[in-house]
Amino acid sequence: MDWLGVYYYWAFAALLMIGFYAVIAKSNLIKKLIGLSMFQSAVFLLYITMGKIDDGTAPIYHEGVSQQIFSNPLPQVLILTAIVVGISTVALGLGIIVRIQEEYGSIEEHEILGIDER
């Protein structure tokens, strides 16, 4: 898992970049939100990667499981919570976007700014 772990970690970095780029560079609000949830997903990957132990198995006892190496359950618990936080943010963000569309007739950030300046 040596270099694979690092690969996972770098994938986390790449995903973080892609999502973050979308958040900053995109003008469309839904696209921003998609980028934001990708940004959060990257962090989930980070946590789950660090919880993995080589040759381990899922931390659930089971009759058929003879292995006694279990991966670390704590990061998994944290990420369960974080996923829920993520979907809550997305839901609220979408609610705001729908209201913006109703009030402004657009969900492009630069257009909205333009409308208000007039």
Binding site: F20, V23, L29, K32, L33, L36, F39, Q40, T89, L92, G93, I96, I97, R99, I100, E103, Y104, E109, I112, L113, D116
Partner: peptide, 16 residues
């Protein structure tokens, strides 16, 4: 209505 874009911006930056 300008509260809405403002709050969206806050949501994005707060989440980051």
């Amino acid at each position: 209505r300008r509260a809405l874009p403002a709050v969206f911006k806050y949501l994005v930056m707060g989440t980051i």
